[in-house]
């Protein structure tokens, strides 16, 4: 025991380290990568209606700029709440070059989001979850990236950090 304890400590440390590094779902490829982005038309949250109209149709905005679609929900704690400030920061940096849009499950979610993190990019809501189905959504938060050629270029199914947003957006710039 006197000679072996460092080995045991090392083995335990290695096992735990490995346990924390297990591949997560982001390593899983989305079936949609490289395919045309499914279209959707959703009602716009009322604070944005003045500048965006009553409803938002994705296909009308495609082709000009790449699009970041972020799916958010107020009950998803703390993951969604951790990500939101980084989303805000990414928008501030890239707003001229990339279109940002947030999809909430309910109108209430969007209002919670605005209260906590402020108004920035347009928010729409999707009470039936059709976007989730069309895009093979894994869960919330999830971020999708659509390039100028209207194709899905990337996906991240977990909260992104600032570096993650940069890396994702750099794919299409």
């Amino acid at each position: 025991m006197r000679r072996f304890w460092p080995l045991i400590v090392l083995a335990l440390g290695g096992l735990f380290w490995w346990g924390m590094q297990r591949p997560d779902m982001n390593a899983l490829p989305s079936v949609l990568i490289g395919r045309p982005a499914p279209d959707f038309t959703l009602p716009v949250m009322f604070p944005y209606r003045a500048s965006w109209g009553q409803s938002f149709q994705l296909s009308k905005h495609l082709g000009k700029k790449p699009v970041i679609v972020n799916i958010w929900a107020s009950w998803c704690k703390p993951a969604c709440y951790d990500e939101a400030p980084h989303l805000q920061a990414a928008w501030q940096e890239y707003q001229d070059r990339v279109l940002f849009i947030v999809i909430d499950a309910q109108e209430q979610d969007g209002l919670t989001f605005i209260r906590l993190f402020g108004l920035a990019f347009p928010q729409v809501f999707d009470p039936l979850g059709t976007v989730g189905v069309d895009y093979g959504m894994y869960g919330v938060p999830e971020t999708l990236l659509i390039n100028r050629e209207d194709r899905v270029a990337g996906r991240h199914a977990d909260p992104l950090d600032p570096a993650g947003f940069d890396k994702l957006i750099q794919k299409v710039l």
């Binding site: 899983l28 704690k77 989730g132 189905v133 895009y135 093979g136 959504m137 894994y138």
Partner: peptide, 18 residues
């Protein structure tokens, strides 16, 4: 748990495993 992730359609077997 509260940060439950609702799975949607279009899953792959690996995603299911997750």
């Amino acid at each position: 748990s509260e940060d439950y992730k609702a799975p949607g359609a279009g899953y792959s077997p690996e995603q299911l495993k997750k």
